[in-house]
Simulated assay, not measured.
Amino acid sequence: MTAGGRTIATICARGGSKGLPGKNIRPFSGRPLIAHTIAHALACPGIEGVYVSTDDEGIAAVAREAGATVPYRRPADLATDQAGKLPVIEHLVAHLEGQGLEVARIVDLQPTSPLREPSDIAAALGLAATAGEADLVVSVRAAGDNPYFNLVEQGADGLVHLSKGNGSARRQDTPAVYALNGSIYVWRRPALAHAAVHGLWSVRIAAYPMARWKSVDIDDLEDFEYAQWLHARHAAAGRP
C-alpha cells in the first residue's frame, strides 16, 4: 500500500459513443474491448483495486465479469458529451472515500487503449514514485509532426508560419515533442482534486513515453480495425 492510502485504477466508460456505438464492449481479439484494460490493471502488482465508472448497465456487467468493481451507475449529468473526464474520476474517487477507502494514488486508464501492457502501467507508476515534484504522470508518444519544423499556423492575413522557431533548424536539431496518447494517467490524490476544478494543466506533469504502436486510441471503426491489426501483428511476433 502507498504511504497514506491505496493505489487504485479507475476506468471511465460511457455508453453513448457516437464515433463507434458500443465500442467499449465491442469484441476485440476475443473479448470485450474494456476487458483488456481491466486485465492490464489486474495484472499490475502496484494496483490495489480496479474501479469502473459507467452509465451503461451492459458495460457494468462486462466490467464485473472481467474482475472490476462497479460501485454505482454514473449520474446522468456526468455522462453527457459535454461532461469533463476529470470531474468523473474525482466523483468516483470521492465516492470510494465516502465508503471508507483511503486513496493515495489514482491510475486512470483509458478503455479505448487496448495495446498498452501491464509493464507500461508499472513503469508509469515507477516514474510517479521517482518524479520529484510531479503531481501527475501522463503517457505520451513521439509526435509525428514538430512545431519547430513542419507544424504551421495561419495568421490574420491568411498566410501561414511555423508554430515555433524561425525555420532555420534541421529536423534532427529541434527539440523532441510528444503527443498525449490518453492511455495512462497516474495522479497524486490532492492533484486530482485540484485539476478536477482548475484543469489538467494546473498541476505539475511528467511524461512516460510509450511506443507508437501501443498508443492507438480507438474512436471510430477505422481506429478499431487498425488496433486489431496491430494487436495481431505484435502477438504473432511473440508479444502479449
Rank of each mutant, 00 (worst) to 15 (best):
L42D: 03
A193N: 09
A193F: 09
S17H: 07
R74G: 02
A134K: 08
K23S: 02
C44F: 00
H91T: 02
L127R: 13
G67M: 02
D81F: 05
P21G: 03
D157C: 14
A124N: 05
W229D: 07
G158A: 10
A142D: 12
H198T: 06
G22H: 07
T69S: 13
L221G: 08
Q172E: 10
P32M: 10
S29Q: 15
I218W: 00
E153H: 13
R233M: 07
T37K: 03
R116P: 00
A122F: 09
L96P: 03
L162T: 10
L127F: 01
T10I: 05
Y178L: 13
R171P: 07
A131G: 08
V107I: 11
G30E: 01
V103D: 01
P32C: 05
I38H: 00
A179F: 07
A79T: 04
N146C: 12
G100F: 13
P190H: 02
G155E: 10
E222S: 04
M210V: 08
R14Q: 10
H234C: 01
A83W: 01
Y185F: 15
D135Q: 12
G16Y: 08
A232P: 00
L115S: 05
Q154I: 15
G67K: 02
Y72W: 14
S215M: 04
V50N: 03
S29G: 06
E117I: 04
L200H: 11
H161P: 02
A76M: 08
L200F: 15
A13Q: 03
A237R: 14
R105A: 05
V88I: 11
K85W: 13
A207P: 00
R14G: 15
D55S: 13
Q110A: 14
I218L: 01
V152R: 12
A193G: 10
G58R: 10
N24W: 02
G4T: 02
I184F: 09
R239K: 11
T69E: 12
M210Y: 02
E57R: 14
A61D: 10
R233F: 08
Q228D: 07
G158P: 04
P75H: 07
P21E: 03
H194K: 15
A207W: 00
P45D: 13
A227V: 04
E225S: 06
S183K: 02
F224M: 03
H231Y: 14
L230I: 14
P45M: 12
D77G: 03
W201M: 10
D223P: 06
G132C: 11
K164A: 15
R212S: 11
Q99I: 01
L162I: 11
E65V: 05
R188S: 15
H40Q: 12
Q110G: 07
L200E: 06
I184M: 06
G100K: 12
A143I: 10
E222Q: 07
W187D: 01
R64T: 07
N146P: 01
A169E: 05
D220C: 10
